[in-house]
């Protein structure tokens, strides 16, 4: 016997039983990116044109490093969830699964590359 009411079982759930989490995650990351976008553009605009040592020292500082890391991480998670919607709209069957897997692998590869570079810059700057 189920003690849960039919209404309780249905609230917030779609046919996939995962409800509105995807939409909510997009809303949260979108709000974060509205704040991060101007900060990131100013940071990157200041860095382009610097020599290599200048770029490393610049992103080794807390504010540019943290803003850039946050923008790439939140941006690529938002990107992966966004591509998922496009894939669900336009691609079917096995191709859909392959595309979703490729999108997630690509997204985390970009995040790892950026975080590695920024972490190394921070450590180099500490060594200096």
């Amino acid at each position: 016997m189920r003690y849960i009411t039919p209404r309780k079982a249905a609230t917030g759930m779609g046919s996939a039983r995962s409800g509105t989490q995807h939409h909510w995650a997009m809303t949260v990351s979108a709000c974060a990116l509205v704040l991060l976008t101007p900060a990131f553009l100013l940071v990157v605009g200041s860095a382009i044109g610097l020599p290599r040592e200048g770029v490393i020292a610049y992103f080794g500082r807390p504010y540019p490093g943290i803003v850039t890391a946050l923008f790439v991480i939140v941006g690529m998670v938002h990107f992966m969830k966004g591509t998922r919607i496009m894939i669900d709209d336009y691609i079917y069957n096995t191709e859909r699964k392959v595309a979703i897997i490729a999108s997630v692998i690509f997204g985390w590869a970009v995040i790892s590359a950026a975080v590695f570079a920024l972490a190394k810059m921070a450590f180099i700057t500490i060594a200096i």
Partner: peptide
Amino acid sequence: TRITGHALVAGVLLLVWWLVAAV
């Protein structure tokens, strides 16, 4: 909106390549 969101990955790739190249 959808097209710009997906095309943006080109700019991110260029900048991340630039960051990785610096180290």
